[in-house]
Amino acid sequence: MKARLDRPQILLGLLALAIIGAFLLLHGNYLISALVLAAIYAIVITGLVLLTGLNGQYSLGHAAFFGIGAYTSALLTIAGVPPLLASAAAIAITGAFGAIIGVPLLRLRGYYLAVATLAFQLIMLSVLNGWRQVTLGPSGMANIPPYAIGRWVVRGESAYYWLTWIVAFLCIWGGVNLWRSRIGQALLAIKSDEAAAAAMGINVSALKVQIFALSAALAGLGGSLYAHYVTFISPERFGPIASFELLLGALLGGVGTPFGAILGALLLIALPEVVAPLRDYKVMVYGIVFILVSLYLPLGIAGLIQGTYVRLCGGRRPGALAAQTGKTEAGA
């Protein structure tokens, strides 16, 4: 099953409408806060979708980057740095971590990276818990200042809704652009056949590191926004279960398109509600869903939707690039 984008401008437009519409509908409702979290997750999951969907790599410890972003932003703003700068720092630091881990690991087989990301996750957790002078340990860090852009301080659910969803929208837009761009196509080529890609002049290791660093940076961005929204963070929020949930969100939403990140984030928010009566069994259920999705729905729900759309409309979708340059597909 091919994973390509179907007239992305239309989907982006629909997304924008949905964001506006949801606000108008739910304005004042407690669900708005759930949607703020969904936006934040969408930002992080976009990184995972790009990593796995575009390049076939798996990150099993992405919550570590989420956490580094959150703590960096929190610490800097508590020390008086303006939040915008703190976010920039969070992005830079997580991106750097991604590059540092990526360089040695991406030369090896994919499963080494996967297990190493898990190891990284566990190290991070133990550092967050153990480095009390800086992170205040397991009891967490409170009183994180609210977000602010210049002089405008972001207060209230509505304001955070717009802040996070605009950023999420930009991330999806960026992801869509990247997918169809020269680098994105090169990454897809690498995913199919690394040796053939190298024979085209593509520096395979360099690109793999770049996309891994980007996905880490996106997690850092999400983490930064998260810290200021919830104003209290603790290490347990950034542990292996959180990483697992993020990966589940990406796989379930669909790694074939950045829009899958939106679906995945919404599902992550909705699933606990569905699983509520079975709350103790949450991890078990997530594990089972995870296995089922990996085996039977490799492109997630977004893939399912794309597939049914194609079958309903009969015939082929235009290729990603034809859609971009506006050329109509030539004949059958």
Binding site: R182, Q185, L188, A189, A197, M200, I202, L321, A322
Partner: peptide, 21 residues
């Protein structure tokens, strides 16, 4: 024949231009 399975005919050829873009 090692083509890029995930991509279209056009996309495959466009990847070929990588070195001079």
């Amino acid at each position: 024949v090692r083509l890029f399975r995930n991509q279209t005919v056009l996309e495959n050829v466009m990847v070929g231009t990588f070195r001079h873009t």
